[in-house]
Simulated assay, not measured.
Amino acid sequence: MTPSTTAARRALVTGASTGIGAATVRLLAAHGWEVVATARRVERLAALAAETGCQWVAADLQEQGDIDHLAERVLDGGRLDAVVNNAGGALGADLVADGKVEEWLTMYERNALAALRVSQAFLPALRERGGDLLFLTSTAAHGTYPGGGGYVAAKHAERVIATTLRQELVGEPVRVIEVAPGMVATEEFALNRFHGDRARAEAVYAGVAAPLVAEDVAECVVWALERPSHVNIDCLVVRPRAQATNTLVARG
């Protein structure tokens, strides 16, 4: 599909207040999509709407009541063609032996269960009229690394939701797409992971000539959504050229 053929299509993007989510909202809007953005931070959503013309609904995806309200608002607004499950994030980089159970639980809630709840809320409409479920996972969903156990476990779980759904929905008019980025330098991901420690956050990207940025991943998301309806991008893994694996990164 070309941008000109998608003018009537409508998408929901979760985790839209920052990073990849916000970049995806911007690019979809630029391609003529109607976009509904959701996240917890009202002021950021309002600013994004003023910039892009998107609609927005504030929601905490760890709360089923918020998701029910989100689904009601979005589906009352007309046809929905795509759901981009982008919300998530990492907390901490402890070894498994020292991992904080409450952080593991929060990561599972924000990554796997948020995607599950959102998908369940919108699947009936997508199955009835056709559409796309896109899961923004991570290369952490495909391999592990020391200090990443909690995030890796949560992202593996999210990936399994997508791969299982694809089998369960085969023959129905719903595409299940996974986009799995590697190292992406965004304003908040590493900062949140290290609880506001900016020095540790900046060290993640130190010496890397060109990590991915949010706009790189947004282009992959929009490209996958704009393929002809019979083409399913099962899984697109995207890394910067400087990164060969989760742990092997060229640094200058």
Rank of each mutant, 00 (worst) to 15 (best):
M183R: 03
R79N: 03
N246H: 04
R129K: 11
L212R: 02
T137E: 05
V160L: 14
L212G: 05
E63G: 00
L126A: 03
A162L: 07
L133H: 06
F194S: 06
N192H: 13
L236M: 14
P228F: 12
P124K: 10
L12I: 11
A209S: 12
G19Y: 08
V42I: 13
E202P: 02
R166T: 12
P3S: 08
A16W: 11
T6A: 13
A203W: 12
V74F: 06
V222D: 06
D66K: 05
L27F: 08
R10L: 02
R227Y: 04
G131S: 01
A37E: 10
M183P: 00
T5I: 07
Q243C: 00
R117K: 09
I233H: 02
M1L: 10
T6C: 13
L212P: 01
V237P: 00
L126M: 06
G53F: 11
A112R: 02
A47C: 04
E43A: 13
R129N: 09
F194P: 02
A224W: 14
I177M: 03
G171S: 04
E109H: 11
A209F: 03
G150M: 14
W223V: 05
L95F: 13
L27R: 14
A11M: 05
L45P: 01
A87S: 10
V57D: 10
E202N: 11
L91V: 09
D76R: 15
W56C: 01
V249M: 02
G53E: 13
L133F: 07
L165I: 14
E168G: 04
Q243T: 00
L134S: 02
G92D: 08
A203S: 13
E102I: 11
V13Q: 04
V83S: 02
A49V: 09
R110F: 00
D132E: 14
R159S: 10
H195K: 14
T18V: 04
G99R: 12
C220K: 10
E202F: 09
H156F: 15
N86G: 02
T14A: 02
I177W: 08
E172N: 02
K100G: 00
R127C: 04
T247D: 06
G150F: 13
D98H: 12
R110I: 06
A23V: 11
E128D: 13
C54W: 13
A190I: 14
V204H: 07
A22E: 15
A87E: 11
V96I: 15
R10F: 06
E187M: 01
A87I: 13
R110S: 12
A16F: 08
C220W: 14
V204C: 04
Y205I: 07
C54I: 12
V42Y: 09
C220A: 15
T137M: 03
T186E: 05
V170D: 14
G15C: 02
L116W: 15
L105C: 01
G130Q: 09
I20R: 01
T137I: 11
A93L: 09
A201M: 09
D81P: 03
D76H: 15
I161F: 10
H69D: 08
R40Q: 07
S229W: 15
M183T: 12
V176K: 05
M1Y: 10
V217N: 03
F122M: 07
R44E: 12
T245P: 00
A7W: 07
G149D: 08
T24H: 02
C54Y: 11
P146H: 09
L95K: 10
